[in-house]
């Protein structure tokens, strides 16, 4: 179980690193805040995702522009459910289990 003094690091990527990744980041920050978890949410462009993850330690990656990013060492979640609201609950279930494992 994640303890309160640990920070969860999430990389959120979208096509341009500005638009949809911002929406997902806002919703993730809200979620972590409600759970009482400390989290750092970093935004980036999908083309840079692999390099960013290789150069810095992240617990997971959330992408709104396809999850096939060539990343193997960190779990990658599809962030589209946070934009549409469909499948949002499954998304958070997966998120919770990733946080618990890390």
């Amino acid at each position: 179980m994640a303890t309160s003094n640990r920070t969860v690091r999430v990389l959120v990527v979208c096509a341009d690193g500005a638009a949809t990744s911002t929406v997902v980041s806002v919703r993730l920050r809200e979620y972590f805040e409600n759970k009482g978890l400390r989290a750092e949410v970093v935004q980036g462009r999908v083309v840079d995702a692999k390099t960013i993850v290789e150069n810095s330690k992240f617990d997971l990656v959330v992408s709104t522009a396809g999850s096939n990013l060539g990343i193997t060492n960190v779990p990658v979640l599809n962030g589209v459910p946070l934009l549409t609201g469909i499948g949002k609950d499954q998304f958070y279930t997966q998120l919770d289990s990733i946080i618990q494992q890390s």
Partner: peptide, 10 residues
Amino acid sequence: MDSALCIGHP
């Protein structure tokens, strides 16, 4: 949705 969702496709 925003077409940005499609731009990550290789």
